[in-house]
Amino acid sequence: MGITVSRVSKRFADFVALDDVSVDVPDGSLTALLGPSGSGKSTLLRIIAGLETPDRGSVVISGRDVTGLAPQQRDVGFVFQHYAAFKHMTVRDNVGFGLRIRKMPKTEIRKRVDDLLALVQLDGFADRYPDQLSGGQRQRMALARALAVEPRVLLLDEPFGALDARVREELRDWLRRLHQQVHVTTVLVTHDQEEAMEVASRIVVMNHAQVVQIGTPAEIYDQPASDFVMGFVGRVNRLPGAYIRPHEVRICEPGEPGCAEAEVERFLAFGPEIRVELRLRENGQRLWAQLSATEQGMPDLTEGMVVGVDLSRARRVDEPAAAGGAR
């Protein structure tokens, strides 16, 4: 069940948007399609919804091949980045739109819409028009509208991309909780790795029209399949021919075997995190280390001080992650 995308390709004129892409979305999961802009993630979502037709390949939703079907017949819910609110309709009419199309009796529509508005915490806003709502409220309305017709899958195209940082964070938490309540198979497109990590239970990383890795957030973070994934997901120090995550840099005594010497350029401590910006003595390379404030045996660091750094957990470029010693 869920969604099965098999060997889908799509090009727009000279631009290859998807190149032989296959993805399985398990039933009831919350999966993120993560990638930089132009990686094909939005095109893939729109192909699942039927808003674009693939040049090759097939899409199966809940065991039904929908490749040749119009969007109307696919039983999907879709949420757009810019809300796509029906501006001339009230919130109630927006949310009830799909039900009116399905000719549900008016009293039933009313009841269902009220339930949905409560679910998305918009009770009391039923008679407002979209432009009387904030961005976050509009997007919750769009979600209620998509959920109203009880779709088999819910597709979200950068749903929080147009919102400011705080609202985005709130909505992320809220979406995750909503998914626990509703359990509808959900696919979320995002270019924000933090968003994908926080919300999704599975992440499909895309780059250059292809899928480069599929896994849980922990797998993607700890065992990136390529240096693209490593650089894209999570913070990273780039050394000549190698990568190391800031939390994998260990501060040691200068001269300790296996340690390089580095000068402390800046020392920032706030909350649970300590950020030490370093410059390697041998080649002037800059990098930073992320330390925990509770870490034991930390030497007292001051700016200008020379310390040792242990970079043994660095991964060479294109070396599969497992060899780097993570975990």
């Binding site: 109307q72 029906f86 199309i101």
Partner: peptide, 21 residues
């Protein structure tokens, strides 16, 4: 085209989308 696409995904025929959206 967002509003029109949203309507068609919600099940509206092209004709319904034209009149209602």
């Amino acid at each position: 085209t967002d509003q029109e696409q949203a309507a068609s995904i919600l099940g509206a025929s092209p004709w319904q989308t034209f009149w209602m959206i």
